[in-house]
């Protein structure tokens, strides 16, 4: 490794620690070199120019940076970029009805606009990504803390949606609209299964 053979004194003074990695972001492959300290959020925003995920707190307390990594909703701010070599990252900008990056709207994009599920828009891309991940978790029968019977498949009601979306803060208070948008898309999806 980079540091092998260095004296302990020099280790503390080394300036940059570059690591090569590959990220597939919304279908496109990117080869980049990052500081070990670089978060996935900063790699996306500052290095790849994908500013769809937002920085609201930069340490896991607001959800604005939510993206889908290998299909799972995670917080990009608490993810070191270097740990995600080879991963597939999808941001709200890349979501569509077809495969990520195939263009066009995702049903949640339309539902958020129709239900006015945002005001300032800053938490919104994270809300949209979180909703995609959450509906997928729901479709796989995963429980939440408000699921009454842990042995049964949960119902997609307002309380379930609210609890599962509570990791995405919205200071504008667009929660009722967000809930309505997620419920609409969730119901449409249930209807087609």
């Amino acid at each position: 490794m980079f540091l092998d053979g260095l004296s302990p004194e020099r280790r503390g003074t080394l300036r940059r620690m570059d690591h090569e990695l590959t990220l597939r972001v919304v279908g496109a492959e990117h080869r980049l070199s990052v500081d070990s300290r670089t978060s996935l959020l900063d790699a996306l925003r500052q290095r790849l120019g994908n500013t769809s995920p937002k920085k609201g707190c930069d340490h896991g307390q607001c959800g604005s940076c939510t993206v889908l990594v290998d299909g799972v909703r995670v917080l990009a701010c608490l993810t070191l970029a270097v740990t995600r070599d080879g991963s597939e990252v999808v941001t709200a900008d890349g979501l569509s009805a077809g495969p990520p990056g195939s263009g066009g709207d995702h049903p949640l994009h339309r539902a958020f606009v129709d239900e006015d599920a945002f005001q300032c828009g800053y938490c919104t891309p994270g809300q949209v990504c979180s909703a995609v991940g959450m509906l997928d978790e729901f479709a796989r029968g995963r429980p939440s803390v408000v699921t009454g019977d842990l042995g049964a498949a949960p119902e997609l009601d307002d309380a379930e949606i609210a609890e599962r979306m509570s990791g995405n803060l919205c200071r504008c208070g667009a929660y009722p609209g967000i809930r309505a948008a997620v419920a609409r898309v969730g119901r449409e999806r249930e209807g087609t299964r």
Binding site: T51, K54, K55, A92, L108, H109, G121, P125
Partner: peptide, 19 residues
């Protein structure tokens, strides 16, 4: 009427100060 900036905001392409 829906917001004129709606599409940009739900996709995250509306440009804020740090970006």
């Amino acid at each position: 009427l829906p917001r004129r900036d709606g599409d940009r905001k739900v996709r995250g392409t509306a440009v804020y100060a740090d970006e």
